[in-house]
């Protein structure tokens, strides 16, 4: 029932997003159906600006929320978010590296990479950090979740320091770009970017529900999960891989968008309970809805200018989350 409602809400939010923009007189339906006589402007707005943006928003929102749910289950910690596997810190470092040093790369290289340099660097930065963290925390074929958590803090500090060095050498323009990257935006979405991230995210979203049974068992503790016949180590590996892949791809396209990965799964746990079978699917749906709505606000609130979406998710997500915590203080538990 909840899943059905969320699906309906998502479809509604997508349609709304397509029709809701700074250009209010756009012939959305005409442009979508490719009716003759629709202006170049309207076709561009619907097909090349809003549609890739809406679809990117759906995938990124779903990826962040599902990854949050997986991480909270895996770490058995309500505060866990995708950042814990190092993917966000690494992606941030990669992006900063590309923004600051990209300008001094050989011209042919810049011409070849175009505006993919920053997303690619972010993706690989996230990946490398996650792999590093995973190998640090794995001894004798067993990954210690606690070591991973602590090593993650150390690695985040290290990438933070390296980022700081680059920030010091950045020019004013680059500093502006860095700041805005950290606040995230779906505004830069186009078809090329969408297709470069979509396959990875979609594969991860399809894989995620298969983790549900293992995550449910893991809530009892690692040993108990093992006795229940769960191959804990394989499951950890798949979970970390899924999160690193989907969040890496998401962050690469949109920059840092906070709070979706924490708020959405907790909200759903309050409504439907901690069962991961439904939690993962519903998280994907609600994450997508939340990001679409935040994006709709981000592009209309100070139109024709645009507010970075990370600000919106935090401004709405923060107080809302607090309010839920205050009302249901005893309910929040994994």
């Amino acid at each position: 029932m909840l899943t059905f409602c969320l699906t309906a809400l998502l479809v509604l939010a997508m349609l709304l997003s397509l029709g809701w923009g700074a250009v209010s007189d756009t012939e959305v339906i005409g442009a979508l159906l490719a009716v003759d006589g629709v202006s170049v402007r309207d076709r561009t707005i619907v097909w090349d600006i809003r549609l890739p943006r809406v679809l990117t928003g759906v995938l990124v929102g779903a990826a962040l929320a599902v990854s949050g749910a997986i991480m909270q289950g895996l770490f058995r910690n309500p505060l866990a978010d995708p950042g814990l596997v190092g993917v966000s810190a690494g992606a941030g470092f990669g992006a900063v590296l590309a923004i600051v040093l990209g300008a001094s790369a050989p011209f042919w290289f810049q011409a070849m990479m175009g505006y993919y340099l920053v997303p690619l660097a972010a993706f690989f930065g996230g990946w490398i950090t996650t792999l590093l963290l995973y190998s640090v925390a794995t001894r004798n074929g067993r990954t210690s979740v606690a070591t991973m958590l602590l090593a993650g803090i150390a690695l985040a500090a290290l990438t933070g320091a390296l980022t700081g060095i680059l920030v010091y050498y950045a020019t004013d323009d680059e500093l502006r770009d860095l700041t805005f990257w950290g606040l995230g935006s779906v505004a830069g979405a186009n078809w090329q970017k969408f297709w470069s991230a979509a396959p990875l995210i979609i594969i991860c979203l399809i894989a995620a529900p298969f983790l549900a049974r293992s995550l449910n068992a893991l809530a009892l503790g690692e040993a108990a999960a093992g006795h229940l016949g769960i191959r804990v180590q394989a499951m950890k590996r798949i979970a970390i891989l899924t999160v690193a892949c989907s969040v890496g791809a998401a962050v690469a396209v949109t920059g840092g968008i906070g709070f979706v990965g924490i708020v959405v799964p907790h909200l759903l746990r309050l409504v439907q309970g901690p069962d991961h079978n439904r939690l993962l699917i519903n998280s994907a749906l609600l994450g997508a809805v939340m990001l679409l709505l935040a994006d709709a606000i981000s592009r209309t609130v100070i139109a024709p200018a645009e507010m970075p979406i990370g600000i919106i998710t935090a401004v709405i997500g923060g107080p809302f989350f607090l309010w839920i915590l205050m009302r249901n203080r005893s309910l929040v538990d994994l």
Partner: peptide, 18 residues
């Protein structure tokens, strides 16, 4: 005049809307 945002962070739709 309407403000279309910071020069390094223009939004295509925002600019088109004017």
């Amino acid at each position: 005049l309407p403000d279309v945002g910071y020069m390094r962070r223009l939004s295509a739709e925002g600019v088109l809307s004017v």
